[in-house]
């Protein structure tokens, strides 16, 4: 009788711990995948673990999260590894997941309800892609103006970004590698950006060419890597930095390809 209740008790503890550990690992992986800084992931997970009544030790690796969960007396433990899903930066998901961690802490949610809310957050779609296309084209055209381009150059950059970003969207929807997508997109944008030289319609053709590919620069991974550096997560910081550098190199390759095709001399 005693043995059975002990066994049952142990099995219950194990199941609870397993559920909490899986939730924490998946939560941290989702935050990592949407481009949150490592310190944010740490603080959110710590808050959740305190509410669940467990100790958690987390290892944040560039493409994996390993969570080890102990009960309060350090007698039972469970560990779980999770891979981030999706690689695109998503601030809406970041905000929703951070909010969820506060909800768990303040409403004292159990891990089953929390997992339900977590699944809801993951199902939310991104912004309308046509809206993003329009806003990005306008943004890059404003960029050209900020660098001092005349209005014809701004128009060229608007058209270049429109087509370049459309190519990027279509290729990413087909799950083509993001590096090849960047090269292709930069190539198309730079060919159109060269029209200032080709048709002689702009007074500042070099600015049109130069700014036509700037929408592809991975700015946020650079900044995230800086934040991880300050927080001491050197591995994640280096991995994000190298990923951003590779995308920048791909961008330059596409730009050089476009300039070579249009036989542009370097500005």
């Amino acid at each position: 009788m005693r043995i059975t209740s002990d066994t049952e008790c142990a099995a219950l503890t194990h199941d609870l711990l397993k559920g909490k550990c899986r939730f924490i690992a998946n939560y941290a992986a989702a935050l990592l995948g949407c481009g949150a800084t490592c310190i944010r992931i740490e603080k959110n997970v710590k808050r959740i673990a305190e509410t669940f009544g467990v100790h958690v030790d987390m290892t944040l690796l560039p493409s994996h999260v390993i969570a080890v969960v102990w009960d309060m007396d350090y007698t039972h433990s469970y560990n779980c590894q999770s891979k981030p899903i999706g690689g695109a930066i998503d601030f809406s998901r970041n905000i929703a997941l951070s909010k969820l961690s506060w909800q768990i802490a303040e409403d004292k949610l159990n891990y089953v309800d929390a997992a339900g809310k977590f699944e809801q957050i993951l199902l939310k779609p991104r912004l309308n892609k046509w809206l993003v296309l329009t806003l990005t084209s306008i943004a890059n055209a404003s960029f050209c103006r900020l660098f001092g381009g005349d209005f014809n150059a701004v128009g060229i950059v608007l058209f270049a970004t429109l087509l370049g970003f459309l190519v990027k969207q279509v290729m990413l929807e087909d799950k083509i590698d993001v590096r090849i997508t960047t090269v292709a997109s930069a190539f198309v944008a730079s060919v159109i950006g060269a029209s200032g030289y080709l048709f002689g319609i702009s007074g500042t053709p070099e600015l049109a060419l130069g700014t036509s590919v700037l929408f592809l620069v991975p700015g946020i991974p650079y900044i995230n890597s800086g934040s991880d550096l300050f927080a001491g997560h050197y591995l994640c910081s280096m991995s994000r930095f190298i990923q951003a550098v590779i995308l920048t190199i791909c961008l330059s390759l596409g730009l050089c390809g476009g300039m070579l095709l249009m036989q542009m001399k370097f500005f």
Binding site: L163, D174, V191, I192, A194, S195, L261
Partner: peptide, 19 residues
């Protein structure tokens, strides 16, 4: 060069439409 320019844009537009 202008012909090449139109060719590239044409390829891209047709490619996206076909997809």
């Amino acid at each position: 060069l202008i012909f090449t320019w139109f060719l590239v844009i044409g390829f891209v537009v047709i490619g996206i439409l076909a997809r």
